[in-house]
């Protein structure tokens, strides 16, 4: 990883020194060697803190929605391919100007699941990485100003592990059984909204759940309210979610939110041929229509 880090640091240094950006957001080593955390660098002399490895899990694009970050104006963002799609979506949705961001794309070979890393796992292979890495089509980011290539080879996928296998399982269940499954999952929800806070695309300053005239979404922690919250979160992210998985990672009670996100992403692709976060100039799938859209459910 040394070469990678050198390039990363040099790029960041140059950007800061030339005043092309006022802030670099990237990864740095945490207190635990197998945990990486975010770092905010404004001084070119601090770029040595920047580092990248298979434990860089967080989608740093989440910071772009924060007012305290926005006020820096021009920002350099260290970003993996999957997370970079969030940047694209933010540009598509007018939350970010392309001129205000320098994308330092890093080639990612897969991120090790944090629960495994916490137990000492340090190798990137199909059994250790997140499901999203197994379906990843963007090891190299789609859009970048600078690219930091990986020093590592791609890991091998032999099909032994089926990513998001539970989706097919749920699809095959009866509606009552699905209902049971989700009821159990949503029962755990404590309405902490960590899923929302961790999401780079949940950028509303007043979330619908906080709107109380009328209160469409129940705020109390009971099964209907919980289900409604989880439903509306998934609905608002349909056709937008880029699959970074941060919501699920942030969930303190381990609700498998990616099973909903991924399912909706597949549905949207199947019905409308749309993949989110791919093209900054594309019309978002729910901001447009086609006269020949799917019509089969309508009498």
């Amino acid at each position: 990883m040394e070469k990678m880090n050198d390039k990363l640091q040099n790029t960041a240094k140059e950007l800061l020194e030339n005043k092309e950006v006022n802030l670099i957001i990237g990864f740095t080593k945490g207190s635990n060697p197998l945990r990486m955390r975010s770092v905010f660098i404004t001084d070119p002399n601090d770029v040595s803190k920047l580092s990248f490895n298979a434990h860089c899990v967080q989608d740093l694009a989440v910071f772009l929605k924060k007012p305290e970050v926005k006020k820096f104006g021009k920002i350099g963002l260290v970003v993996k391919g999957c997370d970079e799609k969030a940047v694209n979506t933010l540009i598509q949705e007018y939350q970010l100007s392309r001129d205000n961001i320098k994308i330092i794309g890093v080639e990612c070979r897969g991120a090790v699941k944090q629960n495994l890393a916490d137990k000492g796992e340090d190798s990137v292979k199909q059994s250790t990485v997140y499901d999203k890495c197994l379906v990843c089509e963007v090891h190299t980011p789609l859009l970048y100003d600078y690219l930091v290539e990986s020093d590592e080879p791609a890991f091998e996928i032999n099909g032994d592990i089926k990513p998001y296998a539970k989706i097919e399982e749920l699809d095959a269940m009866s509606v009552e059984d699905r209902n049971m499954f989700w009821q159990k999952e949503f029962e755990k929800c404590i309405k902490c909204y960590a899923c929302r806070q961790a999401c780079p695309l949940c950028y509303c300053t007043r979330c619908i759940v906080e709107k109380n005239t009328p209160q469409w979404i129940e705020t109390n922690i009971e099964e209907t309210g919980n289900a409604q919250w989880n439903m509306i979160r998934a609905y608002h992210l349909s056709g937008r979610c880029i699959g970074c998985g941060e919501c699920e990672r942030a969930c303190p009670v381990n609700i498998p939110l990616m099973l909903v996100n991924e399912k909706m992403a597949r549905d949207v692709f199947e019905k409308f041929g749309y993949k989110s976060g791919v093209d900054i100039n594309a019309k978002p799938v729910f901001g447009t229509f086609d006269a020949n859209d799917f019509n089969e459910f309508i009498k």
């Binding site: 007018y94 939350q95 950028y203 300053t205 709107k211 019309k283 901001g287």
Partner: peptide, 13 residues
């Protein structure tokens, strides 16, 4: 206008 974040989905539709 206090709560609008300017995603302009409204404008698109």
């Amino acid at each position: 206008k206090t709560t609008c974040v300017g995603c302009f989905y409204c404008r698109r539709v």
